[in-house]
Write a protein that binds this DNA or RNA. Structure first.
Length: 761
DNA sequence: AGCACGCCGACT
DNA sequence: GTCGGCGTGCTC
């Protein structure tokens, strides 16, 4: 039996008596961080019987060598029917589960929906600080032993020992040693004496070392809602009160007062003792936004990427304890461990940062939808320019659509003037700012208004052109032109961290005579400074805003009116709400329009609409100037007319025609490696296998490629890709799973699959 | 993901 | 005859 030495390896199938012996044994189902969908069963040793719960991590022996691996417990129960010889759990890592049961199930859903392994999804969903219990320490504490007070009453005790007992009696729980000494005004000896008399017992407790306390902002009163806002709020309250799940797409133009509606809906949720999660793009997570929510709720947790491990863990614990009413955060806050979720709000629904760019490549909007569905609570999506995916769902009646076509206080949307820069006197001679824009800037500043100039290109010049090669100087590791950053005196690659001083001769042909072409924000800044020498100007892009806090500081100065012209990249296009901005200039609306991307038109429309939304938000009227070389382009014209519905209708028709989303669903397979021949060979094999697997699965399954990725080489790796499409996502997932089992890759080649890809770079 | 097993070619 | 290539399959 168990004590008997075994001379031979055990067979896989256990003997009948072994089954009987295992019948009342407790087993745990464990997920390991392996790229396999399999879960593994282990015996729970008696010592862990009462401690083990789903959501905790354990160490288990794995493989022939019984190497210890860390896995998550996902279920505890009796042995699985397909009995085999089970190994035992080696150790329990966490006292408490790191993740609740419903969230565990949600991570499983993510692993299926985005084709990653459950173990890897789990690993990435729990913040490192939570796993490490960052910011906490084990502290020696003492508490009263059972019946200690009764026993003490019949004992003659010295005064100091009595004092210790009194402190513990009042504390009603474990007290750290140092606090106990201070409160009872004694040293260690009375405490140890009591311990030896078994009147008090030592316990170890995890205590936070965080000293930070949450200070609620000054409370402000509710605003009065206009009829449009009230209608929208009522539409959210209805499923909220039912309660049932519903997704509500709030399509409200910029400045229509969406945030106030979120706040009022969340007030309702909080009044039920439930919590709300508000997801916003990382760059919208400004002090202004946080203050806006902080001033309306008594407890708020903020989750963003700049938190330290300790801070994140601290917020996580506060959220899990239920003391937090509202969680506001970027993408990953969709996993906030709220015990009684009441609503999820996802603002700026169209923002691409909601899609994670690393495995697991989930979209927070879809995860939020699934989480809300499982919790039976509403999901509110807000945007002035919804994605066609969301708009299409709403139009088909799958989600509820609420339109808010007007700005608050009947403020008009700003007029958008399209300027054809082909006929400009200045632009063909290398200027970024054409005559019309220049005059408008002058006028705005003279009238005491502020100006925002948008250019989606950082650096000074995006290309260093060799006149001999007729080519730009490229990064040695990537297939990308180097950008000249004049302030740092270096050429930089925007895809990797390569940098070099500007070469005197072309690195490829050795000839002198190179030219800097094109303009980025640095060059624009120089031009603006020379054209408006008296204006106070600030450039905002990721180069200028590298110091932590500089972003918020610049915005604060702009708000106070200490800056006349704010120029920058994407960073200034979104969400800013400054009433004195009377002019917005888009330097080059074409940069996005002509990209080989199925969403190029959508991005251009969104960009113009969002940028236009930055002006005309106060008493003063605002206007927008859009410089373009394609003034007749339908997308640019629709954007200038603020005609989202017209744009959506037109674009949806085109997407259908091209079998593009949302008419179909996509997945993109990327293969990369240091050797181009191997990468190309692998992608061919994969496409062959996929084509074979597609047979008999209906003729709706399409495959595009293989082809070199638009940026063939990135960070020294060659990249090839192909694209799968099918009418439903389930068809794609099923197709891939059937094919996946049939290929294996050489060591040097890596494969990624991106379900619902947002870009095809 | 590791790691062993297994079935083919070039060497002592 | 054996050493070692890396395709295949399993890990509770």
């Amino acid at each position: 039996m168990a004590g008997q030495p075994r001379l031979f390896d055990l067979p896989d199938a256990p003997e009948p008596w072994e089954l009987a012996a295992e019948a009342d044994l407790l087993t745990a189902e464990i997920v390991l961080p392996l790229p396999t969908p399999t879960t593994f069963h282990y015996l729970v040793p008696d010592a862990l019987r009462d401690l083990i719960r789903p959501g905790q991590r354990v160490k288990v022996p794995f493989g022939r060598g019984d190497q210890l691996k860390v896995g998550f417990v996902v279920a505890v129960g009796s042995p699985p029917p397909a009995a085999r010889r089970l190994k035992s759990i080696d150790a329990l890592i966490d006292r408490e589960p790191l993740i609740a049961g419903d969230m565990l199930e949600l991570t499983k859903w993510i692993s299926e929906r985005y084709l990653g392994s459950w173990g890897q999804v789990l690993d990435s969903v729990i913040p490192a600080g939570v796993k490490k219990q960052a910011g906490t320490r084990e502290i020696r504490c003492f508490q009263l032993a059972e019946g200690a007070l009764e026993k003490a009453a019949s004992l003659k005790l010295p005064a100091r020992q009595r004092a210790v007992l009194e402190v513990l009696q009042e504390a009603d729980g474990p007290v750290p040693v140092d606090q106990l000494e201070a409160a009872a005004q004694c040293g260690t000896s009375p405490i140890h004496a009591l311990r030896d008399k078994k009147l008090i017992v030592p316990v170890r407790q995890r205590r936070s070392t965080m000293t930070e306390e949450y200070t609620p902002a000054a409370r402000t009163a509710d605003l009065i809602l206009n009829p449009d806002q009230q209608t929208a709020l009522d539409a959210i309250l209805e499923p909220l009160q039912a309660p049932r799940h519903e997704t509500i797409l709030l399509h409200g133009v910029t400045g229509s007062g969406k945030t106030e509606i979120y706040i009022r809906a969340i007030r309702e949720v909080v009044s039920y003792g439930r919590q709300a999660i508000v997801l916003v793009p990382e760059i919208s997570l400004t002090p202004q936004t946080i203050r806006r929510f902080g001033s309306r709720f008594s407890s708020l947790a903020v989750l963003h990427s700049h938190l330290s491990d300790a801070e994140r863990h601290w917020h996580w614990q506060r959220i899990a304890s239920g003391e937090v009413e509202v969680v506001i955060g970027a993408r990953s806050a969709v996993f906030a461990p709220t015990p009684h979720l009441g609503i999820i709000v996802l603002d700026e629904e169209h923002e691409t940062t909601f899609k994670q760019n690393a495995t697991p490549r989930y979209h927070a909007r879809e995860v939020a939808r699934e989480r809300a569905r499982r919790a039976g609570v509403p999901l509110v999506l807000g945007s002035a320019t919804p994605t066609l995916e969301s708009f299409d769902r709403a139009q088909r009646g799958l989600d509820r659509l609420i339109e808010m076509p007007n700005r608050v206080e009947q403020r008009p949307l700003p007029p958008v003037v399209i300027v054809d820069t082909r006929n400009d006197a200045l632009v063909p001679r290398g200027h970024s700012i054409g005559r019309a824009l220049k005059h408008s800037i002058e006028r705005s500043i003279n009238e005491g208004g502020q100006v925002i100039l948008f250019l989606n290109l950082r650096g000074y010049s995006p290309v260093l052109w060799c006149l001999k090669c007729n080519e730009g100087v490229k990064c040695p590791d990537c297939d990308i032109s180097l950008t000249w950053h004049r302030d740092r005196g270096k050429l930089l690659c925007h895809s990797c961290d390569f940098e070099m001083p500007p070469p005197e001769r072309c690195p490829s042909c050795g000839q002198p005579g190179q030219k800097y072409l094109g303009a980025g924000t640095q060059k624009l800044e120089q031009e603006v400074r020379s054209k408006f020498p008296d204006a106070r100007i600030v450039r905002m892009d990721s180069d200028a805003m590298r110091k932590p806090g500089s972003h918020d500081e610049a915005l604060e100065r702009f708000r106070k009116g200490e800056i006349d012209i704010l120029l920058g990249t994407q960073m200034i296009a979104k969400g800013l709400d400054f009433p004195n901005v009377t002019l917005v200039g888009v330097i080059d609306a074409d940069s996005m329009l002509h990209q080989p991307d199925l969403r190029a038109a959508e991005r251009t429309f969104q960009l113009i609409a969002q940028v236009a939304g930055r002006t005309g938000r106060g008493e003063k009227a605002g206007r927008v100037i859009v410089q373009t070389m394609s003034p007749d382009d339908a997308v640019i014209q629709l954007a200038a007319e603020h005609d989202y519905l017209g744009f959506a209708k037109r674009e949806l028709a085109q997407r259908r025609e091209h079998h593009a989303p949302p008419a179909t669903n996509l997945a993109r397979v990327i293969v990369r490696g240091p050797r181009e021949d191997l990468v190309r060979a692998e992608i061919r094999k994969i496409v062959e296998t996929l084509k074979e697997t597609a047979k008999g699965r209906g003729d709706d399954l399409r495959i595009l490629g293989p082809a070199p990725a638009p940026i063939l080489r990135l960070k020294k790796l060659f990249r090839y890709h192909c694209q799968l499409s099918a009418p439903t996502i389930e068809q794609i997932l099923e197709w891939w799973r059937a094919a996946e089992a049939r290929f294996s890759l050489p060591d040097e080649v890596e494969l990624t699959i991106d379900v619902d890809p947002l870009d095809l770079r």
